[in-house]
Write a protein that binds this DNA or RNA. Structure first.
Lengths: 212, 212
DNA sequence: AAAAAAATACCTATTTCTTGGTATTGAACG
DNA sequence: CGTTCAATACCAAGAAATAGGTATTTTTTT
């Protein structure tokens, strides 16, 4: 009922070296049934439409199509497939547009294996994973760990939300106003690119396992 | 931040054989720092008050105290400790009283290792685990697996709730009335002994990992 | 065929969450 | 010594969830 089924994944990317990396990263994960690579959009589209994969990893910059169009075409042809965007350089605007166009994840190519696996697991539970990077001008910094965008207080509150406490219970426990807790909740959902508290709970619970 | 820390556990039970079983079951779990056994309530109380364990596994029938009083005394002395009740025979009334008195779990001694570990993990996330058994008169049946008390529809809806869909989104997706979905949600929370949807989400997410 | 369980749907009232804002304070950084 | 960020707190409106019911129709089980 609740297990990850064996996944069919299509990876569309013209960077063959990167594709090689993905393959060696994911190649011997047992939960993956099939991992197919396409080196341009046309090929990726036709493979995807035949295979109807569970997941598509899509490079945002392809020689024969731009990222947003690729995404829209793929979503049109494979409505059931989750799409995670991989990209070299990011800007928040592009990310938002991808979110709007139906991507369930948006990751820089500099992520670690664990981060990629997390994003895939999340995607399979319909939980979005959007990495919020610093604007390009500041991007000499290392890519931020997903949680470092959260402040201490926010982490604390996220955990209590994930235990099923209501805002006012959290407020009492931390000696805060309800309104403050509400603000933190709102910021949490917004920062993590989630939809509501239920997704926040799912996200936090997933983390518990992936971090250990 | 989010990992299971190394747990200190006290197990209070006069059945030495069962205690032995618990010990061999949990003894080499890496997330357990200390596992202490007490063979009566007095001993258990004094050990617990010194050790302030993360978790207390409490046999409901002890020679020197009744279950509910034991529970209350322990909660008074170790406010931070989670208490899971273990018992041979169960009735729903007793279970409810234990819930009211602050237990975070209530399990028959016939559970499997996996079920016990699940309950412990849940407890550490403040998620209750109450096994609803058939009334004693019917109890020749095997103890129900935790999920078998849920119908197909309920499982289906539980999964969608855990993905962060709202009731009306679920209704649309399954071609049901909102009201029906509401009823299922209510029954889910009630059947599983949970508090609200957030705990339902946490519970379902936890299951995903424990079942694989 | 009768009984039990599951799935469906409705009503009402209250609480909680969400979303749209704004604003003040103190700490940290350059 | 400003500027930015975190943390705090407030207002208001609307959506969603919760809790208390009841009730009808299928499906499953005995």
């Amino acid at each position: 009922m609740l297990n990850f089924t064996e996944l069919k994944i299509v990876h569309i990317d013209d960077h063959l070296l990167f594709a090689q990396g993905i393959y060696s990263l994911l190649g011997n994960e047992t939960f993956i049934e099939k991992l197919v690579h396409a080196e341009n959009f046309q090929q990726g589209l036709s493979i995807s439409s035949k295979l109807q994969p569970d997941l598509i990893l899509l490079d945002y910059f392809l020689p024969d199509s731009n990222g947003l169009d690729s995404l829209r075409h793929l979503k049109a042809v494979c409505q059931e497939s989750k799409v995670i965007i991989l990209t070299m350089e990011t800007n928040p605007e592009v990310m938002k547009k991808c979110q709007g166009a139906g991507a369930i994840g948006f990751l820089p190519k500099s992520i670690s294996k664990k981060e990629l696996l997390d994003a895939i697991k999340n995607a399979m539970s319909n939980i979005p994973t959007f990495y919020f990077l610093l604007p390009i001008s500041h991007s000499t910094q290392r890519p931020q760990s997903r949680l470092n965008i959260l402040s201490k207080r926010e982490k604390q509150i996220a955990n209590l939300v994930a235990e099923g406490l209501t805002s006012s219970e959290i407020a009492k426990q931390l000696f805060l106003s309800d309104l403050t807790v509400n603000t933190h909740r709102r910021n949490l959902i917004q920062k993590l690119g989630l939809k509501n508290s239920a997704q926040l709970v799912a996200f936090i619970q997933n983390l518990k396992y992936s971090e250990s």
